[in-house]
């Protein structure tokens, strides 16, 4: 039917743009000035964390003169001052960015994997399995995350950072798996899924090729918020002295080091705190515009 081909090309050819839905939503997000600023600020912080060894003026663990150089207020030599052990706060904040972001991202990857797997299986299987899995989830959700973590970390006081990441991830997937399960449940009766079934697609194929790609947006939103949440949690735990082992520099640890003398030696806690707030804020702004872009598309 060559005539038909030409007929259609002339009559109703679609616009020449060729963008995947993902590229479209990225553009949608960047349209908002606030999210562009947030992305820039976050990008700088991430870059600082990545390039910490190149940027930091001092070794974050070095205690050059514990008598003469301790508790110095901000100066040209030490822009963020020094702490009670004479360590340079700026260098520690820079290395702290590295550690805190890394813990946030890795823990979120752990919870993302668990949450997506659990939610997708429950939603796709449905029936009794779904009901049982959801009740188990309810039980997990009823335990406050912070309390659980404090309990675990007090019971095993000398945990490595790797174990800390795993525990933060293990306690962070419940909400996410709820979201994933709901989305899978809503999508699994869509006609394109039925079409895939009619073509003979396996359950695994339907899950990976048809269901999960269509719920990427809410997952990304939840993951972005998750990273912010883990950063705050980690800081909280480190502040309590049961998070990242000292003398490693995480934002929580640095705040803790200065917490005794906060009213007089404010620089020890203020700067790491500022960085943390900035990171969490930009992550939240990005999550919000991601979720806006997602809602708009629907």
């Amino acid at each position: 039917m060559p005539w038909q081909t030409q007929d259609f090309a002339a009559a109703s050819g679609p616009t020449p743009q060729r963008e995947s839905p993902l590229a479209l939503s990225v553009r949608n997000i960047l349209r908002k000035p606030s999210s562009r600023v947030a992305l820039f600020v976050l990008g700088v912080i991430v870059l600082v964390g990545l390039l910490a060894p190149l940027i930091a003026p001092y070794n974050p663990a070095a205690q050059p003169d514990i008598v003469g150089l301790k508790d110095l207020p901000p100066s040209l030599a030490h822009p963020f001052g020094t702490d009670p052990y004479s360590r340079d706060v700026l260098s520690r904040v820079i290395y702290g960015a590295r550690l805190s972001l890394m813990i946030g991202i890795l823990a979120t990857i752990v919870s993302l994997t668990l949450g997506v797997a659990y939610g997708a299986i429950a939603g796709y299987a449905g029936g009794i399995l779904d009901a049982v899995m959801m009740r188990v989830l309810d039980a997990f959700l009823s335990i406050p995350r912070l309390l659980l973590l404090i309990g675990v970390l007090v019971a095993w006081p000398k945990l490595s950072i790797g174990a800390l990441v795993v525990f933060l991830g293990l306690t962070g997937w419940f909400g996410l798996s709820r979201i994933v399960r709901g989305q899978v449940l809503a999508l699994k009766h869509a006609e394109f899924v039925t079409a895939a079934q009619a073509l003979g697609a396996s359950r695994r194929r339907i899950l990976w090729r048809h269901l999960l790609p269509n719920i990427v947006s809410p997952i990304v939103v939840a993951a972005t918020l998750g990273v912010a949440h883990v950063i705050v949690l980690e800081a909280g735990l480190s502040y309590l002295g049961i998070g990242v082992p000292k003398p490693l520099a995480s934002w929580g640890n640095i705040i803790q080091d200065g917490s005794d003398q906060f009213p007089t030696m404010w620089w020890m806690s203020l700067f790491p705190g500022l960085f943390m707030v900035l990171t969490v804020m930009t992550l939240n702004i990005l999550a919000e515009s991601l979720s806006d872009a997602y809602e708009r598309r629907r």
Partner: peptide, 28 residues
């Protein structure tokens, strides 16, 4: 499934929005 197929009513929901047309046709 190779011998029996189905064409759907709703042209919007019957195509996976995340798959290119070529990939949709290629799946079978």
């Amino acid at each position: 499934r190779r011998e029996m197929q189905i064409i759907f009513q709703d042209p919007v929901s019957s195509l996976n929005p995340r798959m290119a047309v070529g990939a949709i046709i290629r799946e079978g």
